[in-house]
Computed example of a mutant assay.
Amino acid sequence: MQPILIMTAVPQEMALLEHALTNAVRQTATAFEYAEGTIGTLPVLLCAGGVGKINAAAATATLIERCRPHLVINTGCAGAYPGSGLSIGHLAVASNEILGDEGVLTTGGWRDLRFMELPSFMQGKRAYHNEIPLSKHAAEKAMQLADYYGVFLMRGRFVTVSTCSGTRQRGETLARHFNAIAESMEGAAVAQICLRSGVDCLEIRGISNLVVDRDMSAWDIPRAAESAQRFVLKYLEDLDRPELSAFMQVAPER
C-alpha cells in the first residue's frame, strides 16, 4: 500500500501525529529526517521539513521520490486575513495556493509572473504562474468530514509568502488582491511539487493569529497546531474506515 506523506514546517506541528504513529522508525533522506510507521492500518510518513518555500519544496520532492506516496497532507499553522471570518483556533483548507511574492515590483505596483511572461512551471502545454490548484477531491472530503463532526472548517485560497505580513495593511492588501483567507510560508511550494509529481495534495491549517499589526502575545500557536493535527487524525481515521466514509456521503442530506 502506498503511504500518506504528512509535511509540516516544524516538529511542534506534527508532535501529536507522531505520538499516534505505531511501529515508528526514524529515517533520513538527503538530510531530511522523517518518521515512518502506521496510523490504524495506514502507512504514514511524517516530516518537519523546515520553514519556508525552499525547505518545503526540497523535503517534499525528496520524500515523494523516495517513498511514492499517493497523498500528501500539508498541515501546520497559518495567519488569517482580516475579514476572512476565521478566528484563532479555527481550521482552514486550501482550495488553491498562491505564490504571493513571485513577480516584479514596478512603478505601477507589484505584478505577477503572468505579467512577466514567466511561468512558475509548465505541465504539457499548460502554464502555471502564481496560482497552484490542490486536490478538489481531498478538500471536499475534508469539508464533508468537518460537517459530519460539527467542526468549523473554511475552504478558500491561501497565499504563500517569504516575508510574513506583519501589518494589518499588508494583510488586507494581499487578501483583497488574491481573494484569499490565510497565509503561510510553505503551502504553495508543497502544492507545486505535488502537482509536478502527479500526487494529490491536501492542505489543512489551524489559525494561530490574525494578520494584523504584529503582536505575538495575541497568538496561540499550540492551539492552532493541535487543532490541525486532531483534524488530520480524523481524516486518516476516515480513510482507514471506508464504511464511515460511505455513511458521511449521505450525512449532509439528513
Rank of each mutant, 00 (worst) to 15 (best):
M1P: 08
M1L: 07
M1H: 07
I4D: 03
I6W: 04
I6G: 05
V10D: 00
E13Q: 11
H19L: 08
R26G: 13
T28N: 14
E33V: 09
E33C: 02
E36Y: 11
E36A: 11
I39Y: 03
G40Y: 05
T41K: 15
V44P: 02
C47Q: 03
K53R: 15
I54F: 01
A56N: 10
R66M: 11
R66V: 12
C67K: 13
P69R: 06
G76I: 13
A78I: 08
G83H: 07
S84T: 06
S84W: 05
S95L: 10
N96D: 15
D101W: 02
V104D: 11
M116T: 06
E117P: 00
P119V: 06
M122D: 10
Q123R: 13
R126Y: 11
P133H: 13
L134M: 12
H137R: 14
A138R: 12
A138G: 08
E140T: 06
M143Y: 03
A146P: 00
F152E: 10
G156D: 06
F158L: 13
V159H: 07
V161F: 00
S162T: 08
G166Q: 05
R168W: 04
A180D: 09
A189I: 10
A189Y: 06
A189R: 13
L195R: 15
L195I: 04
V199G: 05
E203C: 01
R205D: 03
I207R: 12
S208P: 09
L210F: 01
V212A: 13
D215N: 14
D220K: 01
P222A: 09
P222H: 10
A228T: 03
S245I: 03
F247G: 00
V250L: 09
P252H: 11
E253P: 00
